[in-house]
């Protein structure tokens, strides 16, 4: 028996919108720790890891570890039927081939339940080793989204370079080149508007902009984004989800062959 009640149901709606472009089908894993997902895109270039900790739910009952295969576009279709202020409850019985999403309006005058068919998904689970990153950049998520969108109108790839001067996003295409430098800026009114760079050593890596743009679908989840870079390692683009957890996107770099 599984029953997870999320008062801020809009978070789950935003999570689905953030990952459904990247991943079609995925297993949601439910355990005492929380509600989680790990999935790769179909090209095995990017990986998404989601965690919603059990403490973030108003009610969290998960009698035994359960893995539920879902088509994310179908799940998003159902969650779009929930109001932004609705409380969402996810329910499943042991051994059932369906999951139920229950939506309650804030004043309890409308209660809806949507039952969705589960699917068997043979997914690989990758071990993500702890890494010391050469550079960690924290910046406003909207600013990062703007940069990725702007650069993708010029080129297909972005070179992200971190030096003590700041973080530089560069691209080149048929019509020309573009460079955007963001300097560290801690003297802002609100901490979420700051750009903070922690650099152990300079790093420069090349990534496909198509994936970066896809990651920015998570922008509504968090005011800030953290970009962690190390030479020859996948970049980690992390959006924290309120007090509940995170979505982390890993993207393999383009490398010399």
């Amino acid at each position: 028996m599984l029953e997870l009640r999320l008062v801020q149901g809009s978070l789950l709606k935003k999570v689905l919108e953030a990952i459904r472009e990247l991943v079609n089908d995925a297993n949601f894993d439910c355990s005492a720790t929380g509600f989680s997902l790990q999935a790769m895109d179909s090209s095995h270039v990017a990986l998404v890891a989601l965690l919603l900790r059990s403490e973030g739910f108003e009610h969290y009952r998960c009698d035994r570890n359960l893995s539920m295969g879902m088509n994310l576009n179908n799940m998003a279709k159902m969650l779009r039927c929930a109001g932004n202020d609705d409380i969402i409850t996810i329910k499943a019985d042991d051994g059932s081939d369906t999951v139920t999403f229950m939506f309650e309006s804030p004043n309890q005058d409308k209660i809806a339940d949507f039952e969705m068919k589960l699917m068997d998904i043979d997914s690989e689970h990758l071990g993500i080793p702890d890494a010391e990153y050469h550079a960690i950049v924290r910046m406003p998520s909207a600013e990062f989204a703007r940069i990725c969108k702007d650069l993708s109108s010029i080129g297909d790839t972005v070179v992200i370079s971190v030096t003590k001067e700041g973080v530089k996003f560069s691209t080149a295409g048929d019509i020309g080149t573009a460079n955007i430098v963001c300097r560290q800026n801690k003297t802002v009114d609100k901490p979420e508007e700051a750009t903070v760079i922690e650099m152990q050593e300079p790093v420069s890596l090349t990534f496909a902009l198509r994936y970066m743009n896809s990651f920015t679908k998570a922008t509504p989840l968090s005011e800030t984004v953290t970009i962690s870079l190390s030479s020859e390692l996948p970049v980690v683009v992390e959006y924290k989800i309120a007090d509940m957890g995170y979505i982390r996107f890993y993207l393999a770099p383009k490398i010399e062959e």
């Binding site: 090209s43 690989e124 990758l126 071990g127 390692l233 996948p234 890993y250 393999a252 490398i255 062959e257």
Partner: peptide
């Protein structure tokens, strides 16, 4: 020219 690496190059099956 650079080639796109796949994620399994860095993270192994667990």
């Amino acid at each position: 020219l650079k080639a796109q690496a796949r994620i399994e190059r860095f993270f192994c099956n667990s």
